[in-house]
Deep mutational scan, measured.
Amino acid sequence: MPSETPQAEVGPTGCPHRSGPHSAKGSLEKGSPEDKEAKEPLWIRPDAPSRCTWQLGRPASESPHHHTAPAKSPKILPDILKKIGDTPMVRINKIGKKFGLKCELLAKCEFFNAGGSVKDRISLRMIEDAERDGTLKPGDTIIEPTSGNTGIGLALAAAVRGYRCIIVMPEKMSSEKVDVLRALGAEIVRTPTNARFDSPESHVGVAWRLKNEIPNSHILDQYRNASNPLAHYDTTADEILQQCDGKLDMLVASVGTGGTITGIARKLKEKCPGCRIIGVDPEGSILAEPEELNQTEQTTYEVEGIGYDFIPTVLDRTVVDKWFKSNDEEAFTFARMLIAQEGLLCGGSAGSTVAVAVKAAQELQEGQRCVVILPDSVRNYMTKFLSDRWMLQKGFLKEEDLTEKKPWWWHLRVQELGLSAPLTVLPTITCGHTIEILREKGFDQAPVVDEAGVILGMVTLGNMLSSLLAGKVQPSDQVGKVIYKQFKQIRLTDTLGRLSHILEMDHFALVV
């Protein structure tokens, strides 16, 4: 994948999101292997301009796509893939009243899908469409860049269908997702969380590099694949309309690839034109409109599966009536509230959605109805927002919020430890010299600072030695090549209790 991002070429006709291997024109390309080798690009942008032909009021008969309808489940399912879809609609009884809503608040519980998330729908649909058009064949390999849930859905379907599955996901995604993927037989590649989507090191860039190296491999490409919004247009939206008897006044959905909100909203605009569509985008993402909503100094966020630093091709923002931004604290607070007060075992993005819903639905009156999409299960986040310690460490809970008995030293300040200034190293000294210094002084790690004293990161003896043994660096290389740029900081005025929580999850903390 090139470091400079080429513009994806656009073909003359058809839909841009065809499933299957992508040609340089962004659509299915038939021909000899030699032709494909000559024409197939190194990668295709996940934010390529959409060429979708959908228009409100256009006859369904003019759609270029294969459409399906929700099917009634048999008493005995032939395999677990038949437990994807037909998820329950559940009334939220307490939270709406707590925040003064007059309307009825309903939750579409997508964590009841077989793999635990709304992404099971698009995973199965992308595979079925690729099999139907002859792209996927027995023994082929599926590769997908994902925040985890699409990966789980694909790995689940691949396990049943017999495909090899490789999932490329950023490091910030939970260990629970990784464990589930491994249990399903998927191979996992992790990428830096802070890598831009168009960087060769991003999950998108690495996935395309693997595709170019592995024979008979395919990126189904949830960011561009029409099967993504079509899955929701054909099934999720129809289920909502049936469950609500066609009567709903507002739908609120958090947005990642945009397939969920695009597919549902398009069908609702056709069948229930008075329904307002509300999009939820986390602070630090750029999906919301108008652009002024996205202006923030924050560039990272903890909530998973929603928000991006690019506009995915499948996201149709014209069908969203209003956007709201959400933050991590309210997302996790509301997710825990949904679990504790409503018994809905949902993930953090569901918290984002409901946090926005109780604001947006203030305009609705008694007798009206708001539906929220709860995308995934708490299963993926047992060591994250479900953990009091994690919430404390991230600053989303305060010590006084917890009532468990603490040891005698818990409320003492870090400054009472009488710490001395640490050994520091410059980023320009060599790895070999740094190892000598650390061994001589008896230290395992040291902060790396520039000549102005600005902290650049941390270097550890173990990481340097393993990097040297693996051949990633040489003793003569500058130590700046092996620094940890993500590390926890703590102030002298913070409590030892807070430091204790940090050290339970990290090997060190830097006192500043």
Rank of each mutant, 00 (worst) to 15 (best):
L251S: 03
S175D: 10
D133V: 12
L42K: 11
D249A: 12
D179S: 08
V252G: 09
Q7S: 11
K72A: 06
K94D: 03
D249H: 07
S123Y: 07
A114C: 04
P2N: 11
R196D: 03
K177L: 02
G263D: 00
K108P: 03
M169R: 07
I264G: 03
S3N: 10
D245K: 04
S32R: 11
K267Y: 05
I80N: 07
I122T: 01
H65T: 07
S117I: 03
G116P: 13
K97H: 09
L251M: 11
I80H: 01
L154P: 02
H203N: 09
V255Q: 07
L154H: 01
D179R: 03
A155W: 02
L184A: 02
A253C: 07
S61R: 14
H17L: 15
Q242N: 14
I127R: 04
E131L: 05
P12G: 07
A237R: 01
P12Y: 08
H65P: 06
A226E: 09
D79R: 10
L77M: 13
Q243W: 04
A107C: 15
A207K: 03
A226S: 12
S174W: 02
P49W: 09
S63E: 04
K25M: 11
V118F: 07
L101P: 00
E128D: 08
K108I: 00
T135G: 07
Y233E: 02
F111N: 04
E4C: 15
D245Y: 08
K108R: 03
T13E: 09
K108A: 01
T13I: 10
G96R: 15
G148L: 02
A69T: 12
K83G: 10
N216M: 02
T257H: 01
R266C: 02
I219F: 03
S117F: 03
I167S: 08
V180H: 04
V204C: 10
L220V: 02
A69L: 05
G26I: 05
P229K: 01
L154A: 04
T150F: 01
S3V: 13
K269F: 02
A60I: 11
L106V: 12
A60D: 06
S175G: 06
H203W: 03
R125H: 08
M89N: 03
K30F: 05
I84T: 12
C103R: 03
G100W: 08
V204P: 08
Q222L: 03
C272P: 09
T13G: 11
P229Y: 01
